[in-house]
C-alpha cells in the first residue's frame, strides 16, 4: 500500500508528516521521492544497507567515425547534440536517452553509454525501511529514479509505504501519484497554500486516485480549505496547529513522535483516521 504525500506548494510539511507517521507504523517503509532535495534521511539517519546507482541511457560518439553529416544534431529535439570542428558532440545533461541519434547515424559512430543520474540509498531505522533517491546536481529529471524506488519497494513485501513526494504538479509528482494507491494531501492555510492545494486536488482527481487531506501549520482559521474539502468530498483526517516547539524539533531534523508521548498520540490519531479512510 503506497500512500503518497503531496502538496503542490513546497514547505507545507510533506516530509514532516510522512516521516512521523512512518515512524509510528510498525514495519513501514519510508520512500523519499523528492530526489531533487531529499530530506527524510536527515530525520531517520538510517543505517545504509545498499546503494543503487541509477543510470539513464546516454550516448557516446566516436569522433574517428563521425563524418560530420550532422544528421544526429538535426534529429535531436532536446538540443543535446552539437557540431564542434565538424564532428558531432553530446551534452550528456541534456540527453533524454531516446536512442534516435544511434539509429540515424549512417556511420555507426554513436553508441549507447549509460550515464549515472543519481543514487538510491537503501537503509533501515529500527524496523522501518528507508529508501531515499538523490538526483545528481546538474541532471534534469528524477523520474527514472522515482520509478526505480518503487520497483525496489516492491521487493520489501507488504505493509504501509509512506511516499514523500516532490513539490509542484509536474512530471515527477505525476510519476509518484501514478504508483500510489492512496494520496494524502498536505494543505497549508495561506493564500499560496490554498491556491496550490486546489491544483493538487485537480491532479489527484484527474488521475482517479482516492485522497484525504491533512492541514498543517494551522493558525485557527482553516475555513477556506475545510469548505473546499467538503465541496470535493475529501475527508479531512487531521489538523496540525502551528507550534513553535514542534517547529524547533522539526528544524533540528528530529522525529517528533520519538521526542514525546504527546506528539506520538497526535500522530497516532491522524494515522487511525487516515487508515480508516484508506480501508473504507
Amino acid at each position: 500500500m503506497n500512500i503518497g504525500f503531496i502538496s503542490g506548494k513546497g514547505g507545507t510539511g510533506k516530509t514532516y508528516l510522512s516521516v512521523n507517521l512512518a515512524a509510528r507504523v510498525k514495519g513501514s517503509l519510508y520512500l523519499d521521492c523528492d530526489c531533487e532535495e531529499p530530506n527524510g534521511h536527515l530525520f531517520f539517519r538510517p543505517s545504509i544497507d545498499k546503494r543503487h546507482i541509477v543510470n539513464a541511457c546516454g550516448v557516446s560518439i566516436d569522433a574517428n567515425r563521425c563524418d560530420g553529416c550532422h544528421a544526429c544534431v538535426d534529429f535531436c529535439v532536446y538540443n543535446a547534440l552539437a557540431m564542434a570542428r565538424n564532428k558531432a558532440m553530446v551534452f550528456p545533461d541534456l540527453c533524454h536517452g531516446c536512442g534516435g541519434c544511434i539509429r540515424i547515424c549512417h556511420m555507426c559512430a554513436i553508441e549507447e553509454k549509460p550515464q549515472s543520474i543519481g543514487v538510491i540509498m537503501q537503509g533501515h531505522h529500527d524496523d522501518h525501511g528507508v529508501f531515499s533517491g538523490f538526483l545528481n546536481p546538474g541532471k534534469e529529471s528524477a523520474v527514472l529514479i522515482i520509478r526505480h524506488i518503487f520497483s525496489l519497494a516492491r521487493t520489501w513485501g507488504d505493509g504501509y509505504f509512506f511516499v514523500d513526494c516532490p513539490p509542484g504538479n509536474g512530471c515527477q509528482v505525476m510519476e509518484c501519484v501514478h504508483h500510489c494507491d492512496y494520496i494524502a494531501i498536505v494543505a497549508e492555510p495561506s493564500i499560496f497554500g490554498l491556491s496550490n492545494f486546489k491544483m493538487t486536488v485537480r491532479l489527484t482527481e484527474s488521475m482517479g486516485k482516492r485522497a484525504a487531506v491533512i492541514i498543517n501549520k494551522s493558525m485557527g482559521d482553516d475555513d477556506l480549505i475545510v469548505d473546499y474539502c467538503r465541496e470535493h468530498h475529501l475527508p479531512l483526517v487531521g489538523t496540525m496547529p502551528f507550534d513553535r516547539a514542534l517547529a524547533h524539533i522539526n528544524n533540528e531534523a528530529k522525529i517528533a513522535v520519538d521526542e514525546s508521548f504527546e506528539y506520538a498520540q497526535i500522530f497516532d490519531d491522524i494515522w487511525t483516521r487516515l487508515k480508516s479512510e484508506i480501508e473504507r
Partner: peptide
C-alpha cells in the same frame, strides 16, 4: 524549488541570485 530542469532553465542568463533559506537542517542541506 528543487534543483531539476525548471531550476536549471530559470538560472540561464540571470545576473544575480538570492538564496532564501531557513534555519532547519533540511533548509541548510
Amino acid at each position: 524549488p528543487g534543483i531539476g530542469c525548471p531550476v536549471i532553465a530559470s538560472i540561464k542568463g540571470v545576473d544575480f541570485i538570492i538564496f532564501v533559506t531557513e534555519p532547519s537542517y533540511s533548509g541548510l542541506h
